[in-house]
Simulated assay, not measured.
Amino acid sequence: MTDAAVDLDSRPTKIMYVAEATAHGGREGYVTSQDGQLELKVAMPPALGGDGDGTNPEQLFAAGFSSCFHNALVLVGRREGFDLSGSTVAAKVGIGPNKQRGYGLAVALSVSLPVLDQDVASKLVDAAHQVCPYSNATRGNIEVTILLG
């Protein structure tokens, strides 16, 4: 399935890796990856009426986005000659109803670059936001706020 509104410049020119995962039972079941590396119980969080006895899609998205963004940040930093040891990226993913009677997401990324001054850190974060596949996938689709601290 392709989306006609996709920014053609953000699409990959070559697929280098494909991840495969299968959901069993939706938000009250489990997820597995094709290679067996991932097998997790999924449960609705208490805020959405569940018991919270398992992970949920928002936590998985937060883990994916934060690790991917952090990797992009380290890559950009290395290209510019900076060692980003000790840096971290934390993600918060919120879910709630939208105006189309469905649900939408919002993301807040908190970036810590303790060894860099604010101007350099800000430039690296902006560059990482252009490189990160999650940033490119969500740009224009969901609200992504980046906090530099």
Rank of each mutant, 00 (worst) to 15 (best):
S112I: 00
Y30V: 01
T2I: 11
L8K: 15
P46N: 03
G81P: 07
D51T: 15
F69V: 05
E20G: 13
T55L: 09
D9A: 14
A4E: 14
G52M: 07
G149P: 15
Y17W: 12
A90H: 13
A72V: 05
E28C: 03
A21Q: 06
I142N: 00
G49P: 13
A72I: 08
K99G: 07
L147N: 15
A47H: 13
R11I: 13
L109K: 08
Y103P: 06
V120Q: 12
L40V: 11
S67M: 13
H70V: 03
Q100Y: 00
A72C: 04
G94S: 08
M1Q: 06
K41R: 15
L147D: 13
Q37M: 10
P45I: 08
G49R: 11
A23S: 14
V93H: 04
A62T: 05
A43T: 04
S10L: 12
D117Q: 10
L147V: 13
M1E: 09
R79T: 03
C132K: 06
A128C: 09
D126G: 00
E28H: 12
S135M: 08
V115N: 14
T145R: 11
A19G: 15
T88W: 02
V111H: 08
A106M: 01
A62R: 03
I146Y: 01
A62V: 06
R78N: 14
S87A: 15
A43H: 03
G52W: 06
A21G: 13
G86K: 08
A47V: 12
L8V: 13
G29F: 02
A5W: 01
G29A: 04
T138L: 14
S66F: 05
D51L: 10
A108Y: 00
D7Y: 05
A19D: 09
A137T: 14
Q59A: 06
A106N: 11
D126R: 04
P45R: 09
P57C: 05
Q59F: 01
G77W: 04
S135Y: 06
R27V: 07
S10Y: 03
G49V: 10
R78Y: 04
T22E: 15
F82E: 00
M16K: 14
L148E: 12
R101T: 09
T2C: 02
N71Q: 11
V6N: 12
R78H: 13
A19L: 09
P133S: 10
E58I: 06
T88E: 13
V18L: 11
Q130K: 15
R78G: 07
A5M: 08
D83T: 03
D7N: 15
A91C: 15
A127N: 10
T32V: 15
S33D: 07
A47Q: 12
S112M: 01
A128F: 02
E20K: 11
V93P: 10
L105T: 01
P133R: 11
G26N: 10
E20Q: 12
N141R: 00
M1V: 05
Q34N: 11
S122K: 12
R79P: 00
S10E: 06
L48E: 14
D126Q: 10
L84N: 05
V125P: 02
